[in-house]
Design a protein around this nucleic acid. Sequence first.
DNA 1: ATTATCTATAGATCTATAGATAATGC
DNA 2: ATTATCTATAGATCTATAGATAATGC
Lengths: 224, 224
Amino acid sequence: MKTREKILLCSLDLFNERGERNVTTNHISAELAISPGNLYYHFRNKSDIIYELFQQYEQLVGYYLTTPEDRPLTVADMRGYLESVFDGLWSYRFLHRDLEHLLENDARLRQDYREFTGRCLDAINRIFEGLAEGGVIQSQPEELRQAMSLNVWLVVTNWMAFLKTAQGNNRQVEITKRQLKQGIYQVLTLEVPYLMPAYRGEVLALREQYRPELPLTMMEPAPA
Amino acid sequence: MKTREKILLCSLDLFNERGERNVTTNHISAELAISPGNLYYHFRNKSDIIYELFQQYEQLVGYYLTTPEDRPLTVADMRGYLESVFDGLWSYRFLHRDLEHLLENDARLRQDYREFTGRCLDAINRIFEGLAEGGVIQSQPEELRQAMSLNVWLVVTNWMAFLKTAQGNNRQVEITKRQLKQGIYQVLTLEVPYLMPAYRGEVLALREQYRPELPLTMMEPAPA
DNA sequence: ATTATCTATAGATCTATAGATAATGC
DNA sequence: ATTATCTATAGATCTATAGATAATGC
């Protein structure tokens, strides 16, 4: 593998594990056992590495969120969207963590991310339309549907942050991919009141599969 | 005013305006025109300043979220909760921005924030119960209500971050308090399907007052 | 006497580059 | 010849403290 590729992979790993803020170019080169100078030969700076990782993420999620033009959507489709989007979120989870700071320092990223958000919201909107056509959920007025899509986006993109902060005392508690996917439970909660009778049972059963194991007991004060 | 108080106020201002990450103890002392040594005489480090600001925030929100024991809740109560919570969020908006990093580096804060989240979720839950008793929204099974409360929490605490990232190209665009309160529109969107006919019109009218002016056009690519 | 403040600085990073050297591709 | 890599380092911060000095409260 080319050094350039290695730098990207290693950076992604370190960013995801420790957070972008806690990973310097020194850490990356040390982890790869190359010199800092070598890293700077391949990338102008840390921002450039991040920007390239973002582009990968953007492409991945864009691919996941394409909707078929020729047919309505099924419950299985919906599940597929949720599973794959949370997979993508997991793989690039560092991005949504220090996002504000990243955007602050990179105009390209700021612009691209804004457009990315717009495309994702449109896609969520189309998915709701498709599910309504497929008889899974009630059809809603455009205005309400857009506000719902935005709520879905907020829940999806911030579930990880919630888990981290609500997690136990231990600093080193790693969130698992399985826990991340419990966000699907929360997203489906948003749909519950709109489910059509014919599919209500099926979707509720699907939702149950993602129910968090330790619901709100994790909020209790630590044992003395 | 005592220097200690000044340090807290000035830190809060700078953190809110520039983000905690971009504000060092040097910046704070420079802004106050005191020596760094003096700042360290009053606070052991930056974490201690942040912790004290968090405690103020915790107390403020705790006060806002108390529920009356002796009567059900009205639409006016609900509006009051939303307005005051978003006010608090505004005053200490830096906290939810770099939260993960703050928690990572301060065990006290980590523990306190976890319990704070638990209390807030309980309060939201009680508010939903109160509104159901008051005939404003349908009563829901405990499980659904808890999941709904968590979604409310996610929308409330992350609306600010969304605004920042979705905001225009300019790095210096400051979010206004008014825009922050458009988050109320999103929270009320969560309640729409559960509204009882008797209050449906009233709540929908309330919601309209918070509708964002520039809905999704802000997502469009920048003009060429 | 105690409390508050300042000056000066050590020590720890981090970023990013210059310049030398090694490896590779014609 | 070009591409890749390393060594060494300048310059910029930031944190946190030691030690001196000033201000205040009995």
